[in-house]
Design a protein around this nucleic acid. Sequence first.
DNA 1: AGTAATTGTTATTGCCCATAGCTATCTGGA
DNA 2: TCCAGATAGCTATGGGCAATAACAATTACT
Lengths: 136, 136
Amino acid sequence: MRDPLVHHPGYSLRRASSAMTAELSQRLAEHGVRIVDATVLLWLDDNAQITASALGRALDIQRANMVPLLKRLEDLGLMERAPIDGKSQGLSLTAEGKKRVAAVRATIDTFEADLLARIPLQHREHFIPALDALWR
Amino acid sequence: MRDPLVHHPGYSLRRASSAMTAELSQRLAEHGVRIVDATVLLWLDDNAQITASALGRALDIQRANMVPLLKRLEDLGLMERAPIDGKSQGLSLTAEGKKRVAAVRATIDTFEADLLARIPLQHREHFIPALDALWR
DNA sequence: AGTAATTGTTATTGCCCATAGCTATCTGGA
DNA sequence: TCCAGATAGCTATGGGCAATAACAATTACT
């Protein structure tokens, strides 16, 4: 069986990302959050009172898609909103949210370390710079 | 605004993959196929008479998810099935499928080259080996 | 003051992956 | 040779994330 996709960076990227996503999802399920939830929680922890729109721009999430995401975090009691003016609202973690984000951060840090550890040493330092060149 | 996700390989991987996927999708739309369709077409071109199950195993696609995928390619007139025995069927490209796959392959090759070109030279050769360590 | 941009929202769609369960067929060991 | 177990193809359903279009209310700019 010939594999026409060996040495195709696009395909390798897709497969690696999908494998990574599946594993991280599973680890985060322990905390009752999805991957996107976790990234938002981390951002809120570092940027209290950020606006939904600004957060969406930072994470490249459409405003429309922020709505159910934030509602979920609010329903979980992890995040709350405070009006800034008539149309904007500042987002911040609740006390429960701060507790949760600490656990989530620990899980993510472990995960990222495990991920890097799987990459042979001679390639490791090139990994993030190469990836970042593709989107940052 | 602080970014808590800089230097997180998992996040960079997700973002790079998502950016890449969006662009490739767009380029392939010109040929009327999706990304998954294209990878299947490439495989069929190199592995005529492969079985749906075997193809699914090679690409890590569940048998259940192969069904609508193959039906789509069949409806497009790009792929046909021939019974091997009472329960298996060999998949292969139609004449139209062979024409299409040539165009698709050209688009993908250009895309992969463009993708690599965006990675700074000193990191480039490390990219695929690093990715492959994460899933192959 | 009035036009343009921004914010939050609803509704809908598309793509890809995952699980559970079913039937028919094939295969290998007793 | 027969039968249990593996395999092939399929249906139905749902989850996760992203994309688009449209709308009302508010704010910012000129």
